[in-house]
Computed example of a mutant assay.
Amino acid sequence: MGSATSSRSRVVRLALLDAFAAGAGLGYLAHEYREVVVANPGVIGVALLLVFASGYLIRVAVRALRRAGSRVDAIFAEELGKKPSPRPR
C-alpha cells in the first residue's frame, strides 16, 4: 500500500504543478492581450464553459471505464475460480 500512496501523492503534485503552469500561462496571455480580453468577454466565457464541460465529460468517461473494467475483472475472477484444477487428484 505504500507504493499506492506515493504514486497518488506524485499524481497530486504533478496535477498541482500542471495547474500552476496553466494558470501562469493564462495570466501571461491575459496580461499581453489585455485589450482583446476586455473587448470579448462573452467569447472567453463561452470558451471557458466549454473547457470545463469537456473536463467534466472526460472525468465521467474515465469513471465509467474504470467501473466497467472492475466489472470485467470481477467476471474473470469468478469464472477462473470455477475452473477445475489441471492437476490430477
Score class of each variant (00 low, 15 high):
residue 1 M to I: 06
residue 1 M to T: 08
residue 1 M to W: 05
residue 2 G to P: 02
residue 3 S to Q: 11
residue 3 S to H: 11
residue 4 A to S: 10
residue 4 A to Q: 05
residue 6 S to L: 04
residue 6 S to Q: 09
residue 7 S to I: 06
residue 7 S to H: 04
residue 7 S to Y: 02
residue 8 R to K: 07
residue 9 S to E: 14
residue 10 R to N: 14
residue 10 R to M: 13
residue 10 R to C: 08
residue 10 R to F: 09
residue 10 R to P: 00
residue 10 R to E: 15
residue 11 V to T: 11
residue 11 V to E: 12
residue 11 V to Y: 09
residue 11 V to P: 00
residue 11 V to F: 12
residue 12 V to M: 10
residue 12 V to F: 06
residue 15 A to C: 06
residue 15 A to W: 01
residue 16 L to D: 02
residue 18 D to K: 11
residue 18 D to I: 02
residue 18 D to P: 00
residue 21 A to N: 09
residue 22 A to M: 11
residue 22 A to V: 13
residue 22 A to G: 05
residue 23 G to R: 11
residue 24 A to F: 11
residue 25 G to E: 07
residue 25 G to N: 09
residue 25 G to Y: 01
residue 25 G to K: 02
residue 25 G to A: 08
residue 26 L to S: 10
residue 26 L to F: 09
residue 27 G to Q: 04
residue 28 Y to E: 02
residue 28 Y to P: 00
residue 30 A to W: 06
residue 30 A to M: 12
residue 30 A to P: 00
residue 31 H to N: 10
residue 32 E to S: 09
residue 32 E to R: 15
residue 33 Y to A: 04
residue 33 Y to C: 03
residue 33 Y to Q: 07
residue 33 Y to E: 08
residue 34 R to M: 06
residue 36 V to K: 06
residue 37 V to S: 02
residue 38 V to N: 05
residue 38 V to Q: 13
residue 39 A to K: 14
residue 39 A to C: 02
residue 41 P to S: 12
residue 42 G to D: 15
residue 42 G to A: 14
residue 43 V to I: 13
residue 44 I to F: 15
residue 44 I to K: 02
residue 44 I to A: 11
residue 45 G to S: 15
residue 45 G to V: 01
residue 45 G to N: 15
residue 46 V to H: 09
residue 46 V to M: 11
residue 46 V to E: 14
residue 47 A to P: 00
residue 47 A to M: 07
residue 48 L to N: 06
residue 48 L to V: 07
residue 48 L to D: 03
residue 48 L to E: 05
residue 48 L to T: 05
residue 48 L to S: 10
residue 52 F to W: 04
residue 52 F to S: 06
residue 53 A to N: 01
residue 53 A to Y: 01
residue 53 A to D: 01
residue 54 S to C: 03
residue 55 G to K: 06
residue 55 G to S: 11
residue 56 Y to I: 08
residue 56 Y to H: 07
residue 57 L to Y: 04
residue 57 L to C: 09
residue 58 I to S: 15
residue 58 I to H: 14
residue 60 V to A: 15
residue 61 A to Y: 13
residue 61 A to G: 13
residue 62 V to I: 15
residue 64 A to H: 09
residue 64 A to Y: 03
residue 66 R to W: 03
residue 66 R to E: 11
residue 66 R to P: 00
residue 67 R to N: 08
residue 67 R to P: 00
residue 67 R to C: 05
residue 68 A to I: 01
residue 68 A to W: 03
residue 68 A to D: 08
residue 69 G to W: 05
residue 70 S to C: 02
residue 70 S to L: 09
residue 70 S to D: 07
residue 71 R to E: 10
residue 71 R to T: 05
residue 72 V to E: 12
residue 72 V to N: 04
residue 72 V to H: 05
residue 73 D to C: 01
residue 73 D to M: 01
residue 73 D to Y: 00
residue 74 A to M: 05
residue 75 I to H: 07
residue 75 I to D: 14
residue 75 I to G: 01
residue 75 I to A: 15
residue 76 F to W: 05
residue 78 E to L: 13
residue 78 E to K: 14
residue 79 E to C: 08
residue 81 G to F: 02
residue 81 G to H: 10
residue 81 G to T: 03
residue 81 G to W: 04
residue 82 K to D: 14
residue 83 K to S: 03
residue 83 K to Y: 07
residue 86 P to W: 12
residue 86 P to K: 12
residue 86 P to T: 07
residue 87 R to N: 05
residue 88 P to W: 03
residue 88 P to H: 06
residue 89 R to F: 06
residue 89 R to C: 03
